[in-house]
């Protein structure tokens, strides 16, 4: 469920990057004061461990399909939320580069979806209270299941929100939600069982690791509820702000998803904000009128005539197609020429 660049708008990608960078800075600062030196190599090597473990497939009982580990909850239980968040962020960064899982812009969303919820929400609010002192295998199982499910549900919901806010898909909100949440319920249950299994295995073999993880990072024992609430209020404000900003700036996506959900859409005023700026910019850049520049695709006038979809206009004429093919051919030709010049094999 990695978010992908292609489904994002710059504003949504940027907002989540800002949130993620803030969280990385916050976690690093918290750790700097409290971290045991020993944990510096431990965190790094555990990141590699999670990365490698995610690549092992296993068979999900009763389905015959194969599953993979997420690992966010395991890390949080073993390292505490701040250290675990940094490790998850580094794992996802390496994946974004080496596997191209999602791309660079979507990385902010992915760290947010797969790091913030397990480390800073599911762990302090669900796992800690349910697991208690962590000495009962049953309580660990219940706590892992509940926190695994909640963490993934929130992550999946986040993916839905990010996608719809970006407005690149035509999927209705409800349909998308109905597809994502049940799949991630199943994944969350498996993740919960695996988390509990691994934690109980470690607890049986080397109990001191779990004890030290809880004590060496004092904050692991429980982030004060107050801080969590403040965090959530801040998140709500940011999200609300981002939402209303979208409504005014990039009505395309939001208006459309609201319309799909409620059955009626309201067109916000489009004569201000970014589209208007772009439009005027485009009018100014249309310096060769004889080439017959058309207005941009999301022109409000076009929308009024055919409200169910924005008219596709500027780039769809025959000459545009020819031009597109030519541009591609030229780009490929340049690449071919460079390679041929280097005496290497051709594209």
């Amino acid at each position: 469920m990695h978010m992908a660049d292609a489904l994002l708008s710059p504003a949504v990608g940027g907002t989540f990057w800002a949130g993620t960078i803030g969280a990385i800075g916050y976690a690093s600062k918290k750790l700097k004061d409290h971290l045991d030196d020993r944990k510096i190599p431990l965190m790094g090597v555990l990141g590699a461990f999670i990365f490698a473990s995610q690549m092992i497939n296993f068979t999900i009982p009763g389905t015959g399909s194969s599953g993979h580990l997420g690992g966010g909850m395991i890390l949080t239980i073993l390292l505490g939320p701040h250290a675990a968040f940094l490790v998850m962020a580094s794992v996802l960064t390496v994946q974004a580069l080496f596997f191209a899982d999602g791309g660079l812009l979507a990385l902010g969303c992915n760290i947010w979806n797969l790091g913030i919820y397990p480390c800073f929400v599911a762990y302090p609010l669900i796992y800690r209270p349910l697991a208690g002192d962590g000495r009962s295998a049953q309580r660990i199982l219940v706590a892992s299941l509940a926190s695994g499910i909640v963490g993934l549900q929130m992550g999946a919901f986040s993916v839905v929100l990010e996608t719809l806010l970006s407005g690149k898909t035509a999927l209705p909100f409800g349909t998308f939600l109905l597809m994502m949440q049940p799949i991630h319920l199943a994944i969350g249950i498996v993740e919960g069982f695996v988390t509990a299994g691994v934690i109980n295995y470690v607890r049986a073999a080397r109990p001191e690791i779990l004890d030290s993880s809880a004590s060496s990072e004092p904050l692991a024992a429980g982030i004060p509820l107050r801080n969590v609430l403040i965090g959530f209020i801040a998140l709500a404000v940011v999200t609300g702000g981002a939402l209303s900003w979208f409504a005014s700036v990039h009505p395309d996506g939001l208006e459309w998803s609201i319309k799909r959900v409620t059955g009626k859409g309201e067109l916000p005023d489009q004569e201000h904000g970014l589209p208007a700026t772009l439009k005027s910019l485009q009018e100014k850049t249309a310096f060769l009128p004889e080439y017959g520049f058309k207005p941009p695709a999301n022109e409000p006038k076009a929308k009024e005539e055919t409200p169910s979809w924005p008219a596709v206009d500027a780039g769809t004429s025959l000459s545009g197609l020819i031009g597109g093919v030519l541009v591609l051919a030229m780009a490929l030709g340049i690449g071919w020429a460079i390679r041929a010049f280097r005496g290497k094999k051709i594209i």
Binding site: S317, L318, S319, G320, L321, I322, G323, L326, V327
Partner: peptide, 11 residues
């Protein structure tokens, strides 16, 4: 819109 311009130019 480079492709459109190019296309029209060629056309």
């Amino acid at each position: 819109p480079v492709p459109q311009m190019l296309g029209r130019l060629v056309g």
